[in-house]
Amino acid sequence: MPSARGRNLTFTEEARRGQLIDVTIELVAEHGYGATSLGRIAESAGITKAGVLYHYPSKQALVEAAHEGVLSELVTAVGAAVDAAEPADGPAAYIRSMVGHLRERPRHVRMLIEAMTSVTPLTDSKARWSAVADLVSAARAARGVDGELDLRTAALVIGGGIDAIVAESLTDPSYDATAAAELLITVVDQGLLT
């Protein structure tokens, strides 16, 4: 992997960057973006602040790298689940995998929220809803469903439902997010895909 300096990173440098990202995710999830300083990250990683700055030029750059890593892991997992499903079942695979992945990684959820609300906007809303809209459109076509549907709104409803389920499971660990995801799938199937 090339560094910002244009050369390939050594194994040790790659490992240190991975450690810094892991520490950043933990600290931002636990304390929030504002309370996570480069000094705190350095102390938790067992290196100096200068050592952190050797790998990342700023706190924002490190948080962006952590956000990118968390998002990449999420996209890979959800993408694999959706790719394994038939087009007619794409929305259900998306909902199950999103809720399941995020429910199992509460620190990642907190990292995503902190990065999206505390740093320059890192995600494009249209990128998220348009991918879901495409799934809904493909599912409707595979099921032979005709008629007009505002795909953007349908995608936003699905995304909002997922966000609410994940948020509730973060605040109440006894909340059955799996059952909630299945209910959302039923609502989507009956309201958008028939």
Rank of each mutant, 00 (worst) to 15 (best):
L102E: 00
A177C: 06
A80H: 08
A84K: 07
G34M: 14
E104S: 11
D124L: 14
T194W: 11
L20G: 02
V132E: 00
L151N: 04
V187P: 04
A142S: 09
V63A: 04
A164Y: 12
D134Y: 14
E30I: 13
D176I: 07
I25N: 01
A154N: 04
R16A: 11
V23A: 01
E148G: 14
A177N: 02
H101M: 07
A127F: 15
K59E: 03
A61K: 02
G6A: 11
R105L: 11
E68K: 15
D189N: 09
P121K: 12
D163V: 11
G46W: 03
A180L: 04
A177W: 00
R105V: 10
T186E: 13
T12I: 15
E26D: 12
G147V: 05
R40C: 08
G191Y: 05
A127S: 15
R40A: 12
Q190G: 13
N8D: 15
S130G: 12
V132Y: 04
A85P: 02
D83C: 10
V75G: 08
L170E: 03
A154E: 02
H31G: 09
A139M: 11
A177I: 03
F11R: 15
V109N: 00
V132C: 02
G18C: 10
A80T: 12
I158N: 00
A42R: 01
D22Q: 06
D89V: 10
E64T: 09
T194M: 14
S174P: 06
A179N: 10
R140P: 06
E68M: 14
A35G: 13
Y33D: 09
M98W: 08
M111N: 00
E13F: 09
L192S: 09
I185N: 03
K59H: 03
A84L: 07
M98P: 04
E26Y: 09
R152C: 07
L122M: 12
D134P: 12
A29S: 05
